[in-house]
Design a protein around this nucleic acid. Sequence first.
DNA 1: ATTATCTATAGATCTATAGATAATGC
DNA 2: ATTATCTATAGATCTATAGATAATGC
Lengths: 221, 221
Amino acid sequence: MRPGATARDEILDAAAELFTGQGFANTSTRAIADAVGIRQSSLYHHFSTKDEILGELLGGTVSTSLAFARAVHDDSGEGRQEVTSAARLHAVVLFDGSQLCSSRWNLGVLYHLPEARAEVFQPFMAARTELRTIYGELGQELTAVCDSDAGLGDTAFRLVESLINLRADGLISADSASATADTVMILAGLKRELPAVRAASSGLISRFGDIPVRTPSRKSA
Amino acid sequence: MRPGATARDEILDAAAELFTGQGFANTSTRAIADAVGIRQSSLYHHFSTKDEILGELLGGTVSTSLAFARAVHDDSGEGRQEVTSAARLHAVVLFDGSQLCSSRWNLGVLYHLPEARAEVFQPFMAARTELRTIYGELGQELTAVCDSDAGLGDTAFRLVESLINLRADGLISADSASATADTVMILAGLKRELPAVRAASSGLISRFGDIPVRTPSRKSA
DNA sequence: ATTATCTATAGATCTATAGATAATGC
DNA sequence: ATTATCTATAGATCTATAGATAATGC
């Protein structure tokens, strides 16, 4: 049974499954309709174009992680500077990575679809870029207080995104996200501090982890 | 002017540009033909299906890096064990990464196209899997002689693949590949050994770097 | 009355084939 | 003779719209 309170949500769920599994261009509106159990043309009562369905899915993915990253970034931490800075990056990696690993469908692949590069989706790609920027700043903050290399944030972002590919190849395990977060800490030279960082990181996640996420672009003019 | 000695090569070059830029399904055979300057149907004198063009491109990309990785993996190194093992992984990351960064088109994205998952391309995906396995083994070898974590090879593979996304986002710089190789070494806890590792790594690259690569599947029965 | 679905279809593709014509290599 | 190109087209899509019918909410 396909989840979703409304027909609209069922359509989005079916589209998510098909777009992530076989791509946007290879998924016909008929295939989406069939997966929901309605006629092809009935989709157009809920969405005015096929692009709009993709846009809705793209928006939904990034918003949660971005909201969390903003919250962590804006928070004025307390405690030992080294551990605090490390915990911020750790928490963002863990939270973002967990979203990518455990969402119902592997929605991260949508970012890599060539269609997502189109002009209409620029707002969503901009959100992804903002997230990348926050990674970069958290990385710099951490690099300033320990002896890690420049570009730590970028490397962290790359490792998180690679979880998408790992999942697409069926190689995700239960701890892939937390292992990735730990790897970033080791890269920062904080292997010995890991227990303290992990603890502070889960503190951040329980504080900011369930921020109310605005449902994106529900045409509430 | 489009490079290529033969019409076949010109078609492959045009297809590479279009497939990597806008995807397989969004690229019509007409678009490829137009880019070459011939009629759509004339493509079918050189390739019997559109899939065959993609297959040719997929094969060409992995073969060089896989040949290099095999050669390095099979080589019985000499010198200090720690540096030797590190240099092998460093060299494979650097070589593979350099291919991905500097090829005429960003051919790595072809692996992420949903169409590449099709049955017919299983041989090419298998080659990519073999390359991943070699990364894993080189990682284990290195982990055995220094105090790095398990999964080093997998992390290295993920970082190399992320160069594809970096390039797709226009964020590649001249030293992205070598910076990635260095990052893996730091992750292995070999920051102090970097100069020696780099030297040994370039030794491996100059020894095995220009192995004659069989042109893949040129239907030479 | 409004919202959601349906049937039917226009118009625009797109891949691959058939068969004619031109270019090339002995 | 063989290889490479061309014109023309079959057959199968696919997206989105028009307009009819059914279901729902006052």
